[in-house]
Amino acid sequence: MSDAAAGSAIELRQLTKVYKAKEGDVRAIDALDLQVERGEIFGLLGPNGAGKTSTVEICEGLEEPTSGEVRILGRSWGEDSQGIRERIGVSLQETKFFEKLTVLELLELFASFYAKPMPLPELLALVGLEEKATQRYQNLSGGQCQRLAVACALIGYPDLLFLDEPTTGLDPQSRMRLWEVISSFREGGGTLLLTTHYMEEAATLCDRLMIIDHGRCIALGSPKQLIAELGAGHVVSLEAPGIGERLQAAELSSLASVRESTSLGDELNLTVEEPHVALPAILSLLREKNIELAGLSTRHVSLDDVFVHHTGRHLRDEEPRK
C-alpha cells in the first residue's frame, strides 16, 4: 500500500470544540469519535446547530479543534497541510464566488490551483453546466450555483470530498441532479463526507451515517441498521390535545405489537411491529379513555423516527432556510 493510500479517509478521536461566548462556553463538539473508510459515502445527519459544520470544518483544516486528534487520509493537518489540500475537495455551506466571472472563468481559476485538474469540458458535463459555461455567476440559479460549487470541489480529482449541506434550499429537481453527481463520484471510488438535515437524502445516498445532536453521536450505522434498531417497522402517530399526558407509557407498551411510545406533547408516536394488529388495540384504549383523536397516521419508520427515538424531538427543519 502506498503512503498516499495508507490510513482511513477520516479518523477523529475524542474531538472536542468549545467556542468561547459571553453567555458561557458553547460545546459545539463533545468528545466525538468518527472513522470514515475509503470509498464510503458517509453522512452526518442532525438538526441545525448540532455540530455538523464544525466537525466538517475541522476535518477541512478551517477550524482548530479544542482537543482531540484529527487524521485526514492518514495525515494530520500539522504535518502536511499542503498534501491534504491537494487530495481533498470542499464545498462549504455558504460560499459566493466572484459575481462578474463566468462559470468557465471560475473553473479556470480553481483549475490553476491543482497540478492535474479535470479537463473543464468533462467537468462541465459531469455537473450539467455545459450550457451555462459563459454565463456570469451572478446570473445563475441557486441549484446552478451549488453545482458549480461542487464542480470546484471535484476539479482536482479528490480522494476525499466534503459537501456541507449541498442541497439545502434547493428545489427537488436540483437536488436530484446533485444526487446524480454524487453517485458518479461514488462510482469512481471516492470517499465522501456529507452533511445534511434531510433524512431522505441521508437514507438515499449514504452507506453509513452518524446522527449527531448537541455535538454528540447519538446513533451510528447504515440507514437500514439504524431503522432496524428501533425493532419495529412502522410508526403510528396519534394527534389529540394533551394526548402525551393522558396516556401512560406502560399501558401503551402493553398493547399488542406496540414496542415503544414517544410523547411529543399533542402528538404521540408508537413504534409498531404490525399495524393491523396494533391499531384495533390502540383504538379501543382510546375509546376507553374517552380520547377524541384529531388525527392518525401510519408510516414506515424513517431516520426522523430514529432521531425522535433518541432525542424526543423531530429533526424538523424540512423547509429550506431563507
Binding site: R85, I88, L92, T95
Partner: peptide
C-alpha cells in the same frame, strides 16, 4: 464576508 477567502484556502493555492 462571502466566505470566498476561506473557500480558496482549502485548495492547494498558497
Amino acid at each position: 464576508t462571502r466566505h470566498l477567502l476561506r473557500r480558496l484556502t482549502v485548495t492547494p493555492m498558497r
